[in-house]
Every structure is written in structure tokens, then in C-alpha cells.
């Protein structure tokens, strides 16, 4: 039903000091499914260099800027390469490639411009600890406070958008506050947004790479400044 090769579907994979084996695994999994992959290395200590492949685009920031900046760079390249649909994907192995078609479906049916993965729409789609669930609950309220959207999942890196939405989105928050900035811009440009169930699997590796509670404070501070100056 959904054949990715029909359209130019670009998966944007921002990486910063990730396990090279894991990146290779995710990239080859995505390429096998017919997606084009934009790998944005946000100045990892050890330069990420996968063997060149058809439909694989590799970029590298000269200095580390943050995930938001890496995503925006990836979006820019995908648009240059005539992407029809764009998917953002975390490179720490917490997302499942099999969830992507479900995110693209509402876009192709023209029911939405942008879809956000959510681990809480359906039961059993996550293995987050109670503490992380508490943080995410706080994140929902922060999002609501700053954007007016009360989403089921505050901080999910899996999103899909059509070209129209990607051309509107322009992330200025270089670090993790970009997740909320996404919502702000969805609202600002009146994009049609839909939440779609997606699994999130925390492994010991992704937990080590992920957001600490202290980082949440940093995000809040960045958002505060964003509201003040933008």
C-alpha cells in the first residue's frame, strides 16, 4: 500500500557522539525500506563517515550546535534535494523504523501537514520509568503553557511533515527547546497537526544518551528566553 519509493521521503538523522555501529544499523535499515537518509553529524568527537551509498547524504557541522540546529540543517538539505516528505528520527535506537509509514499516512491522505509520534496514545508503546513519565508530564504542561497545545507526548523525536510544512519550519533553538519551538511554529503557520502512536524503546544506551532531569530546566530557560526575544 505504502511504497516509500513513490515519493522522495527523506529521513533526517541528527547524530552526536553516537555508537557508530548503531548508526550504520539504523541507516541501512532505513535505506532498505526505500527512504533517503540525511545524516547530520553535529561535530561528533569522532567524525561519522559511513561508506557512501545511493540515497545517503552525509553532512557535518564544523562545531557542535545542538540537535535543533542539526535538524534544521538536515531539513534544508532535504528540501534542496526535492523532498516530498520529511521524517525526523533520533539516532539512539529508541524509535522503530516500522512506525514511519503510519506517520506518513495522514500526510499522504492530506489530512495533516505534520504528524508527531506519541508513545502514550496507545498503551504498551513505551518502557519509560515513573520518573521519566513524571518529567514528560511536566513537559506537557510546559508545552501547553508556551504553545497552547496539550499533547499526549511532550518530547518525541519522531515526526513527519510534508514539504509545505518543512518550508515553513525554521528552527532557531539550537538545543533541545526545538521540540517546543516546533509546536510554536506549527501554530504560527497554522499547520494541520496530528498525533500518531509510535513506540519508544529505552535501552541502557539511549538512557545514557538521553535527557537528564537537569536538562529539562535548561530547556525551560531556553524557552523563556525564546519567548522574550523572538
Amino acid at each position: 500500500m505504502l511504497n516509500p519509493t513513490d515519493d522522495n521521503i527523506f529521513v533526517i538523522l541528527p547524530v552526536f557522539n553516537e555508537e557508530p555501529g548503531l548508526i550504520g544499523q539504523i541507516v541501512s535499515g532505513l535505506l532498505q525500506q526505500g527512504y533517503r537518509v540525511v545524516l547530520v553529524d553535529d561535530a561528533s568527537a569522532k567524525k561519522v563517515m559511513l561508506p557512501p551509498a545511493n540515497h545517503l547524504f552525509q553532512l557535518r557541522h564544523a562545531v557542535n550546535l545542538g540537535q535543533g540546529a542539526a535538524l534544521q540543517t538536515g531539513i534544508a538539505l532535504a528540501l534542496k534535494k526535492n523532498a516530498d516528505y520529511l521524517v525526523t528520527f533520533d539516532a539512539d535506537g529508541q524509535h522503530s523504523i516500522a512506525d514511519i509509514p503510519a506517520l506518513l499516512l495522514p500526510l499522504r491522505e492530506k489530512k495533516a501537514d505534520i504528524t508527531l509520534g506519541s508513545r502514550f496514545l496507545l498503551p504498551g508503546h513505551h518502557n519509560a520509568s515513573w520518573f521519566r513519565q513524571l518529567l514528560l508530564e511536566a513537559g506537557r504542561w510546559v508545552n501547553y503553557f508556551f504553545t497552547g497545545f496539550y499533547l499526549s507526548d511532550a518530547h518525541n523525536g519522531l515526526r513527519a511533515m510534508n514539504r509545505y510544512a518543512a518550508e515553513k519550519i525554521n528552527l532557531k533553538e539550537n538545543r533541545m527547546a526545538h521540540a517546543t519551538e516546533f509546536l510554536l511554529q506549527i501554530k504560527q503557520h497554522k499547520l494541520r497537526m496530528l498525533e500518531v502512536p509510535a513506540t519508544v524503546t529505552y535501552t541502557d544506551y539511549s538512557k545514557g544518551k538521553g535527557q537528564s532531569a537537569f536538562n529539562s530546566l535548561r530547556i525551560f530557560f531556553d524557552l523563556f528566553l525564546h519567548k522574550l526575544f523572538e
Binding site: 547530520v40 547524504f57 552525509q58 553532512l59 557535518r60 557541522h61 564544523a62 562545531v63 550546535l65 540546529a69 534544521q72 540543517t73 534544508a76 538539505l77 534542496k80 532557531k172 539550537n174 528566553l225 526575544f229
Partner: peptide, 23 residues
């Protein structure tokens, strides 16, 4: 802080342009 953010955005623009051109 406002000036810092401005500087950060300038750096970002430059780094992004460089990365895109190289790719």
C-alpha cells in the same frame, strides 16, 4: 543574553551553510 543569542544564530547560519556546501 539577547546579544549572545544573536551571535549564536550567526554562528549557526555560517556552520549550516558550510555543511550544506560541503555535502
Amino acid at each position: 543574553y539577547a546579544r549572545l543569542r544573536k551571535l549564536e544564530q550567526i554562528v549557526t547560519t555560517l556552520v549550516r551553510k558550510d555543511a550544506l556546501e560541503e555535502a
